[in-house]
């Protein structure tokens, strides 16, 4: 990708007690790029994602957002997180707020937007994910797929520079996965910079600009979907992709 690097991880290390989750991971994310990180569970993919927006503290290395080091001492972490959107496996919508208020609250309380403007923008984001007719429903009244789409709208409302997706469809019933992947694919088409951890191979194959294969805390191989699926260089990559494609099935366009 030949756009500038918007998010950069340099030699990141994370340790929990005696366990090294990952060590010396480096990753450049270009503006407008969609990167999908794949790999076996427990290899630190989610942890890596949560380190990117400083939800989890790293034990070594640096992270740069638009050239500024966000891991430097004295950084206003809240400010940083306002510029990165995150979507969680368990949706994590605010249960006491309607869909509209979920999307709105960041605008009114964090960005201190006036009510009317915040409401308008929130409705816009909700319609972007196809849920404007559910604006005054509570999370308890929405299906999993709907909740996740509201969560995406909530993240988008903050106009983030980068969107981070942590296994966004892993907790969804199979028939609901499509509606969420559809929204994500649309975002990719609109050139949103996206870093996605997922098992959805079909999505990775069709939407990703780059696929990163992580295992045991390090990047084994990365490249375009074509490169990885057709000509994987590492044996381990070949093995993993083979198993996964069997399980999830190749998606033919």
């Amino acid at each position: 990708m030949d756009t500038p690097v918007i998010l950069q991880a340099k030699n990141l290390t994370k340790i929990y007690g005696k366990n090294v989750i990952f060590q010396n991971i480096s990753l450049d994310v270009h503006k407008g790029e969609t990167i999908v990180i794949i790999g076996p569970s427990g290899t630190g993919k989610s942890t890596l994602l949560r380190c990117m927006n400083l939800l989890t503290r790293i034990d070594g290395g640096q992270i740069f957002l638009e050239g500024q080091e966000i891991t430097a001492a004295g950084t206003n972490e809240d400010r940083v997180r306002q510029q990165m959107g995150m979507v969680f496996q368990n949706f994590l919508l605010f249960n006491h707020l309607t869909a509209l208020n979920n999307v709105m609250i960041g605008l009114s309380k964090v960005k201190k937007m006036p009510q009317a403007a915040a409401r308008e923008k929130a409705m816009h984001e909700l319609s972007r994910v196809g849920l404007s007719d559910r604006a005054d429903h509570y999370p308890g009244q929405l299906s999993g797929g709907q909740q996740q789409r509201v969560a995406i709208a909530r993240a988008l409302a903050m106009d983030p520079k980068v969107m981070l997706f942590d296994e966004p469809t892993s907790a969804l019933d199979p028939e609901l996965i499509g509606e969420v992947l559809g929204v994500m694919a649309q975002l990719a088409r609109e050139h949103m910079t996206m870093l996605v951890v997922s098992h959805e191979m079909g999505f990775a194959r069709e939407v990703a600009d780059r696929i990163v294969f992580m295992e045991k805390g390090s990047i084994v191989e990365q490249g375009s979907p074509e490169d990885l699926f057709e000509r994987p260089r590492q044996a381990r990559t070949r093995e993993f992709l083979g198993k996964i494609t069997e399980l999830y099935g190749k998606k033919e366009r």
């Binding site: 809240d78 306002q82 510029q83 959107g85 368990n90 964090v110």
Partner: peptide
């Protein structure tokens, strides 16, 4: 999880406690 989600949209700890 509610606290994590609140921090993720840039709320400070106190804002998260207060509003969420």
């Amino acid at each position: 999880g509610q606290m994590v989600a609140a921090r993720a949209i840039g709320m400070s700890r106190w804002q998260a406690i207060q509003h969420i």
